[in-house]
Lab assay of single mutants.
Amino acid sequence: LVRYRTISKIPQITLNFVDLKGDPFLASPTSDREIIAPKIKERTHNVTEKVTQVLSLGADVLPEYKLQAPRIHRWTILHYSPFKAVWDWLILLLVIYTAVFTPYSAAFLLKETEEGPPATECGYACQPLAVVDLIVDIMFIVDILINFRTTYVNANEEVVSHPGRIAVHYFKGWFLIDMVAAIPFDLLIFGSGSEELIGLLKTARLLRLVRVARKLDRYSEYGAAVLFLLMCTFALIAHWLACIWYAIGNMEQPHMDSRIGWLHNLGDQIGKPYNSSGLGGPSIKDKYVTALYFTFSSLTSVGFGNVSPNTNSEKIFSICVMLIGSLMYASIFGNVSAIIQRLYSGTARYHTQMLRVREFIRFHQIPNPLRQRLEEYFQHAWSYTNGIDMNAVLKGFPECLQADICLHLNRSLLQHCKPFRGATKGCLRALAMKFKTTHAPPGDTLVHAGDLLTALYFISRGSIEILRGDVVVAILGKNDIFGEPLNLYARPGKSNGDVRALTYCDLHKIHR
């Protein structure tokens, strides 16, 4: 019993810090008490220290592992850092350059016999395009090294910054494609005289377009951006097909006994025919423009016929181009109408809503002055909100995010209106959640004399007048207030005048 009563005193000691020596009952000389009392004092002292730490809000209350900052290894790049964003855009520009100039170089340097010394005699450094290609190869190699040090988000939505895990993730992902696209074939085969082989191998750079397509997928929600990307894709495919079309004609031209190829026909049409040795002929500019003209006309199913396939190889390629053109029509131009419709969806919704308003007016036989006010209010409210119901949009977000959005939407009023000066951010967040926005066209009466005042109004834009009878008592403008002081009276009061809008007004109100 003594032991039980001794232990039962522990909660009292913990909360009230009572010393055991003052209790005459606990001072009985028993061996059990002498053993338990020192333990009680020690526990009391420890609990006292913990309570003191909690009340003082000291940093040592938290466990040590929670006080440590997340460790980022040296030379690790955050995937959302500004440097990584700028670097990704730079790589994107280099990939676009590669997609345009690599097929052009591979096709127009394929057994090209233009006048001038061969590239091997001039030297590697004197070729501007080769120098640019070398810079692109170096940048792609540097990009691989950067990807080995860039964080990523795993399946659990955690940012991984450990170098080993980053390397394994990159090896399992895009490393092989990036490595093949970054191989400097110019340096590996330079001086061997195989410019045709170098041009063909350099087309491996186009593998990076797969990554670019995935990154550009984030802009699919913007109709104008999608339309622009589709047109660029169409032009890029036409450019690639033009390079292939020229390569076919250029390879067949020296081996044909009869002059029936499209390059021969082009030379005869523009007065620059090929001679018996295969030299001469149109310039590279004429060849490229004509090839691009043929691919565009074939892809769009126009086909004027002034550039036509004559050999079997050219006919087979033309059939493939027609098939590609039909697929592009289905996948690209078939979506253009939907994209344009999405661009004008706001206008369509406006006309639909206006039609419903006019049908309501016609069905209920609203008189002319009231009908005009109804239409003007709808037009003004639509121009202010673009038909978007803010309350319906915010309803799907958590309250903390709703408060931040409301604070942002009402920031101008909260910053410049005098009653809100000096208020804490928590108070402003709470008030912003209570605001209701209303609009009024010129001549609209917001409050009639004798109406119950259940709200306090803040003028965000425009001006109003307060009338008693036919006498203008006051004219209020931006950041002015009218209405009933909230919670100042037990019952809502009545208006002693009319409140009429002089201009288009936007008002925020808080109800009782």
Rank of each mutant, 00 (worst) to 15 (best):
V160I: 14
V212N: 06
A348T: 10
F140P: 01
S331R: 03
I237N: 01
S383G: 08
T102G: 03
A119E: 08
N386G: 12
F333I: 10
S345D: 09
G303P: 01
N391Y: 15
F378D: 04
P82G: 14
I248D: 01
T113R: 08
R358L: 03
I237K: 01
L201I: 07
I340A: 12
I144G: 01
G261M: 01
R208Q: 09
A125K: 15
G164E: 06
D88T: 01
M251F: 09
F360R: 03
L78I: 06
L216Y: 05
D133N: 12
G396R: 08
V447I: 11
R74Y: 05
L187Y: 10
E359F: 02
F228E: 01
Q127A: 02
G271N: 03
P369C: 04
Y65G: 05
G281Q: 01
P163Q: 04
A119K: 15
G305A: 14
I189R: 14
L176Q: 03
A182K: 01
I339M: 04
H239S: 01
Y293K: 01
V131S: 01
I324G: 08
T295H: 01
G191C: 04
K172D: 01
Y293C: 08
L431Q: 03
L78M: 06
G334S: 03
L263N: 01
L355C: 13
A225I: 09
G199K: 15
K287W: 01
R349A: 14
G281W: 01
A99G: 04
L110I: 03
S220G: 05
S313T: 14
Y222V: 05
L374V: 14
D268A: 09
L110G: 13
R373T: 10
L241F: 05
V336N: 03
R165Q: 12
G261E: 01
I166T: 04
E376M: 06
C406F: 05
Q68I: 06
W240Y: 01
C427H: 03
Q402L: 03
Y104L: 01
H73M: 04
L145C: 08
F175K: 01
F185K: 03
E64S: 06
N250I: 14
F397L: 08
I144Y: 01
C400H: 08
R349M: 05
R214K: 05
K272C: 01
D88N: 01
K272P: 01
A338E: 03
L263D: 01
F101E: 09
H380P: 01
A348R: 11
V131H: 01
G261Y: 01
Q269E: 01
N335F: 04
K425E: 15
V142F: 09
F435Q: 01
S220L: 05
F397D: 01
L187P: 09
D186I: 09
A247P: 01
S283T: 05
S345T: 15
Q402I: 04
V357N: 03
T120H: 04
I388P: 04
C122R: 01
M390R: 07
I189L: 11
A440Y: 05
Q365M: 04
H264K: 06
T347N: 12
L446I: 14
H239P: 01
Y104P: 01
L292T: 01
L413H: 01
H169T: 05
V132L: 09
H169N: 09
A348H: 06
Y246F: 01
I332A: 03
Y97M: 01
T347F: 01
A449V: 13
I237Y: 01
F378C: 13
P118G: 12
H380G: 08
S81I: 01
A106F: 04
G249T: 03
C232T: 05
I141P: 01
L145K: 01
A181G: 14
P419Q: 04
P273D: 01
F234A: 03
R218L: 08
S276D: 14
D257M: 06
R362A: 07
L209S: 13
I237C: 09
Q415I: 12
A225W: 15
L428P: 01
W75T: 04
V302T: 14
Q253T: 11
R208I: 04
M251T: 04
H448S: 07
T347W: 14
S345A: 09
R211T: 01
V159I: 10
A338C: 07
Y384W: 08
R356D: 13
L129H: 03
A392Q: 13
R218P: 03
Y274V: 03
A182C: 13
L78G: 04
R371V: 03
V226G: 11
A107P: 01
T98R: 03
I284E: 04
G199C: 12
C122I: 01
T233I: 13
L413R: 01
F175A: 06
Y329H: 15
G164H: 12
I72K: 15
L129G: 12
N250T: 11
G249A: 03
P254H: 03
V132E: 01
T352H: 13
F294I: 01
P419F: 08
P118D: 03
Y80R: 05
Y344G: 10
L355F: 15
M390A: 05
L227E: 01
I332V: 10
Y329P: 05
G280H: 01
V357C: 04
S383L: 08
D217A: 08
K418M: 08
I270S: 01
H169W: 04
L94F: 04
S220D: 08
L229T: 05
V226K: 10
D286I: 01
I141E: 03
S105N: 15
L110E: 15
M256R: 12
I135N: 01
K287E: 01
E64K: 12
V307M: 01
F294G: 01
S105Y: 07
L428I: 06
E252S: 01
F294Y: 03
I146V: 05
D217G: 05
D444S: 10
S337D: 01
E114H: 15
I183K: 01
L134V: 07
V307S: 01
T150R: 01
E64F: 01
L374K: 01
T120L: 04
I237D: 01
A291E: 01
G271S: 01
L230K: 01
V95K: 01
G422F: 15
H364L: 04
G267A: 14
V357E: 02
S308Y: 04
F294N: 01
Y80W: 04
F101L: 15
A106T: 04
E121S: 14
R74E: 04
M179E: 01
C427M: 09
N368S: 08
L187N: 15
S297P: 01
G123L: 05
T445V: 11
H380M: 04
G116E: 05
W245C: 01
G281F: 01
Y246K: 01
N250A: 14
G278D: 01
A430S: 11
R211F: 03
Q269I: 01
Y344Q: 07
P441E: 06
L93V: 12
H264Y: 12
P441D: 06
Y288V: 01
L446M: 06
I96Y: 01
I388T: 06
L394S: 01
L187C: 08
K418N: 11
